Simulated scan of single mutants.
Amino acid sequence: MVNVRSAVLNDLEPLSALLDGYRQFYKQPTDIQAARDFLDQRMGLGDSFILVSENSEGMLTGFVQLYPGVSTVGLNARWTLNDLFVLPNYRDKGTGRALMEAATQLAHDHGVVRLILMTQVENERAQHLYESLGWQRNTAFYGYLLDIK
C-alpha cells in the first residue's frame, strides 16, 4: 500500500531531488538548489498544495503539486494539477494512481469543482493513468503559451 500525505518542511531535501528528476524528465538541466529554492518558496508562501508518496521505510517516492485558481465563467474554484512525478522504480505499482486519487480528494475537501492539467502529447503513460481515473481530454479549447522575456 502506498502512503500519501501532505509535504512538510522536513521533506524539503528529498522533495527537491524529486522535483529535479521531474524537471529532467521534461529535458531541463539538473539544478537541485533551484528546485530546493522553488519548493521552499512554495511552502513559505503556501501558494500550492504538495502531496508526497512514501514507501514503507519512509522514503519519498513521488509527489503531486496543485495550484489553486478560480474560474470567472464558472464562478468557482478550479485547481491546476501542475506536477506529478514518481521515481522510475515505483511506477506501475499504484504510486501515481494513489497520488492522483489523494489530489482529487484534497480538492474535493476544499470545495473545488474542477481539476485541470496539461501533459505532453508524447506522455502516453500519464495519459493512460489520467483517463483510467476518469479525466477527459479537453477538446473544446485550444491551449496557448506566451513567453514573456
Results as ranks from 00 to 15, higher is better:
G134I: 12
L39H: 01
Q28N: 13
G134V: 15
F25I: 08
L75M: 11
D47W: 10
D40Q: 15
R42K: 14
I148Y: 13
M43F: 13
Q41E: 12
V2K: 01
D37L: 12
V2T: 10
T139F: 09
R23I: 02
D92R: 12
L19H: 04
R23P: 03
R5S: 09
R42M: 09
G94C: 04
T95Q: 05
R23F: 07
Q41N: 13
N55G: 06
S56N: 06
Y90L: 01
E57V: 09
L51F: 08
P88S: 09
Q28S: 14
D40V: 05
V64T: 12
A126F: 03
Q41P: 04
T61V: 06
A77C: 10
K149N: 15
F63G: 01
D11S: 06
R78W: 08
S16P: 03
L81D: 02
L15C: 02
Q120D: 11
G62V: 05
L87W: 01
R125V: 13
V2C: 05
D83V: 05
A77L: 09
T72C: 08
I116C: 13
L60D: 01
A102L: 06
Q41Y: 12
R78H: 11
E54H: 07
D147M: 13
E122G: 09
A107E: 08
W79E: 07
G96Q: 00
Y90N: 05
E54P: 05
D147C: 15
G96Y: 01
I148W: 14
W79I: 02
S71T: 12
L39R: 00
Q105V: 12
M100G: 02
S53D: 05
D83H: 03
V70M: 12
E54A: 08
G143H: 13
F38T: 10
N82S: 15
R137A: 13
F49E: 13
Y67S: 13
A7W: 00
L60A: 08
F85M: 00
T95E: 06
G69K: 09
R114G: 11
M43T: 05
L146W: 15
N55H: 06
Y26C: 08
V73H: 07
E13Q: 11
Q136W: 10
V2W: 03
A140V: 11
R91S: 07
V64C: 12
D147R: 14
F25Y: 14
Q127A: 07
E54S: 08
V8L: 11
L81P: 03
L129G: 04
S6D: 10
L84M: 08
T80E: 15
L84W: 00
L18F: 07
E122Q: 12
L19R: 01
L117T: 12
W79K: 03
Y144T: 08
L117E: 08
G58V: 03
P68F: 07
N3E: 09
K27L: 13
T95Y: 04
S56Y: 07
F38Q: 09
R97P: 00
W135N: 13
L45C: 12
T119N: 08
D47K: 09
I50C: 10
G96F: 00
V52W: 00
A7C: 10
Q33E: 13
H108C: 14
Q136T: 15
P14L: 04
Y67G: 11
M59D: 10
